[in-house]
Amino acid sequence: MNPWGFTERELKNEEDLEKLKVFLSSFDLVYEDSVDYTILILDNENEIIAAGSLFRNILKGLAVNQDYQGDQLIDYLVSHLISVAKEKGYYHYFIFTSPQMAESFKYLGFNEIARAEQMAVLLEYGNQNIENYYSIMKEKTSADYSLEGAGIVVNCNPFTNGHRYLIEYASQREKRVHVFVLEEDLSTFPFETRLMLVREGTKDLGNVFVHPGGSYIISSAIFPAYFLKTEDAKTLAQAKLDVKIFANYVMRIFNLSARYVGEEPYCMVTSCYNKAMMEELLPLGKKLIIIPRKQISGEVISASHVRKALRENDFTKIASLVPETTLKFLKSAEAKYIIEKLKNKESRH
């Protein structure tokens, strides 16, 4: 029960959903399917006067009808969603919202991380913040930061000869290369495994440093569409946010002047992402270097091909696609359950 005596309940049915979509649209907000929990506050006539959703530790779709904005319902909703997230073990929170709504969260102690003009704003709250997070990571890595380096973001699900080729290519041309492995565990290969395989597979390259990506690089917080596999207008806004975060925090803190990416002619989401990168990095005086994908027998090497071959138990093919380190792992007992999991599902990532 809230202090105002308004009805308060979870989103229940299609009718609620339709109402919520209309309600959110007047705040330039879009309802996203990727939510774990949605709370509605309703007036006496069962109309929505406030709403908010939660996906893991990300608060989204938060809005309050203008007539009720004096009542501090937004404070109440944010508090409520935080307590729900806390019960699930999250102590660090994001808000993904529209520029129109962003100001009202700053008064609640949320700090803006990045903004895609007229599209989306990401804010964070908690004991961890993005500046500290990457600064500490930087301090822990003993590299010569006086010289400009380059950055690469990879998922490596799993690490292939293609990834190796991209990293090696950069390492030959740059003084220093930092590789950030996406941390979110929505891929078949768990993060720890992916990170380990990248580290193992690049050990021989002395100027390459491999880091966890943290919750700030292409995570579902910032970039749900990447994980949702949708290809609509939202994708561009999210991609821009992600690129801005990479440029404004990671590249600045690690003194990186270029970002290397593999060419992505097929995947719509990824090519949209590369377009966003181009638009955001160049004005900041940063280079974007797109490398054609490594091919074998006229076909590009892709992690999805490795996964396909794994499903088919075709280790001859796999041996041609991945470096020795990855192959060794895939043949190990540890990899068995991952391969089992893989055989049971079809997914792009």
Binding site: P3, W4, G5, N44, Q66, D67, Y68, D71
Partner: peptide
């Protein structure tokens, strides 16, 4: 211009 919301019997 909008109407004031009706909030009968509510002491907020």
């Amino acid at each position: 211009i909008r109407k004031m919301p009706v909030r009968i019997g509510m002491v907020s």
